[in-house]
Simulated scan of single mutants.
Amino acid sequence: MNIHEIISLSILGMGLIYIGYMIWKKQMIWVLHYYHRSKLKAEDKMMYCKFMGIGSIICGIGCIQYPYLKYFVSYYLSVVIFWIMIIAGICCMIYSQIKYNKGIF
């Protein structure tokens, strides 16, 4: 493992966590592309932002933990946890899209 991998995944993870926080807590829905929020009702905005933000934060945590678990614990464990967290985050976002935006697009 080289230092570039650690730095790049940590920066990517921190960026995803920051974006997730801004969507979830600050409800800055404008960071999402328009077609991802085109059919969203005003009363569903809070829950939509919550699930989209949490999904992004889960993906960010998965990116940050990967190089450190790979270095300190085990390569295989880090890969499994990375993919579980990425898939869980994406599923959270897809759930929010389907439930509150009435479809993926």
Rank of each mutant, 00 (worst) to 15 (best):
M47R: 09
I29S: 03
L40D: 00
D44R: 10
V31A: 03
Q65V: 14
M46I: 09
S96L: 06
I23D: 00
G13S: 03
I17H: 02
I57G: 04
G89Y: 05
M52Y: 01
G89C: 08
G60Q: 04
F51M: 04
Y100S: 04
L9G: 04
S96R: 10
G89K: 11
L69K: 12
Y34S: 13
S8T: 11
W30S: 11
I3T: 11
S96D: 08
S78K: 14
G15H: 07
P67M: 00
S8N: 04
I54S: 05
C92P: 05
R37C: 00
L16W: 07
N101H: 14
S74D: 14
K50D: 04
K45F: 01
I104V: 15
K99W: 08
L77P: 02
W30M: 08
L32C: 07
S96I: 03
F72N: 02
F51E: 04
F82T: 13
V73P: 04
L9M: 12
G55S: 12
M85R: 14
A42G: 01
I81E: 06
C49H: 08
L40I: 01
Q27L: 00
Y48G: 05
W30D: 06
G15I: 11
L69F: 07
G55N: 09
Y71Q: 14
L32F: 02
F82Y: 14
L12S: 15
I7V: 13
K25M: 02
I87N: 13
F105E: 03
I98H: 04
K70Y: 09
D44L: 05
K26I: 10
L77G: 01
M85G: 13
S78H: 15
K39Y: 03
M85S: 13
I90Q: 09
Y66N: 14
L12N: 04
I11M: 13
G62W: 01
K102I: 12
I61M: 08
I81M: 10
